[in-house]
Design a protein around this nucleic acid. Structure first.
Length: 279
DNA sequence: CGCATATCCTGACTGC
DNA sequence: TGCAGTCAGGATATGC
């Protein structure tokens, strides 16, 4: 569901279509989406604010506003941001929880069937515009250098399954279940490999796989699964799902060697792997 | 510390 | 065809 590539795709769309716009009014209709603060404070903080820029760290988006505060968004499982031209006259789809009216008559809507997603406004922002609420996040592989030495250090600091480390946002920010499996496949490492057994050469492969898989997925505008809710800002879908080597492909032939892809459970999550290619 | 489990929630899918 | 049950997953909390 939305992981780093999907969130980055939305960020690029927001930079193109929303940066420079002013929020005329905010309307919170859902009960759970704005939960870190009083919805009235949320709407008051957004009224008349101009969007200066949009950043991302891991799976979090943050729009810097002209009073140096930031609107922070996390899509979680099923959230999406939809930009609707001529918004006020266009019916809201089900599960629309927050609507921001913009000064060009469009609406930026937060739609989220499962209501795990979250929006909040914070003035607790670093000079570079990063909200302090995101301070605990680890390395973002597309913003910060992620090389073999950093992966060696991350791997050396914990004793767990490789997949569990990849899903830990305090280590590497932005990887979720789908890309975690694709990264392990690319690195030719089993997702249930113990971190303490990863060699220097394998750490190097892993670092390359993280950056390469995520970069390719961004270029393909992310993955939209069959059941999935992920859509970009204009409702379009991604294309990277057609290039998944193992995720969701249990029983299908491995694209590298032809062996059947297996499904196992690691850290409470379904994981897909090729038992021949990944060691 | 690691790791499993439960929680939040809806919709898609499975099996009867 | 319909309906109940299961599963999906991001982050977080809790218990072992």
């Amino acid at each position: 569901m939305p992981e780093l590539p999907e969130v980055e795709t939305v960020r690029l769309d927001l930079v193109r279509d929303v940066v420079g716009r002013t929020i005329v009014a905010a309307d919170v209709t859902g009960r759970r989406t704005v939960r870190r603060q009083d919805p009235a404070a949320f709407t008051a903080a957004l009224a008349s604010r101009r969007v200066e820029s949009v950043g991302r760290h891991g799976k979090y988006l943050f729009a810097r506003l002209d009073d140096a505060s930031a609107l922070v968004a996390h899509l979680r499982m099923s959230g999406s941001l939809q930009l609707v031209a001529g918004g006020a006259g266009v019916g809201r789809e089900p599960h629309t929880h927050v609507v921001l009216a913009l000064d060009d008559g469009s609406e930026l809507r937060f739609v989220d069937p499962r209501t795990f997603g979250e929006l909040f406004v914070t003035a607790d922002v670093a000079p570079d515009g990063r909200p302090h609420a995101l301070a605990a996040l680890g390395v973002d592989p597309l913003l910060d250098p992620l090389d073999a030495s950093i992966v060696r250090e991350l791997v050396g600091r914990r004793r767990t399954a490789l997949k569990a480390m990849l899903l830990d946002q305090r280590a590497i920010a932005g990887v979720g279940n789908i890309y975690g499996d694709e990264i392990c496949f690319r690195a030719r490492l089993r997702p249930d490999r113990r971190t303490e057994s990863v060699s220097a050469g394998e750490a190097s492969r892993l670092a390359g796989a993280v950056v390469d898989v995520l970069t390719e997925a961004v270029a393909a505008r992310g993955s939209t699964l069959r059941d999935a809710r992920y859509r970009d800002l204009r409702g379009g879908h991604g294309e990277y799902q057609h290039r998944h080597a193992v995720y969701g492909r249990a029983g299908e032939p491995c694209p590298r060697c032809g062996r059947a892809v297996e499904r196992v459970r690691i850290a409470g999550r379904s994981s897909f792997l090729c038992p021949a290619c990944q060691r």
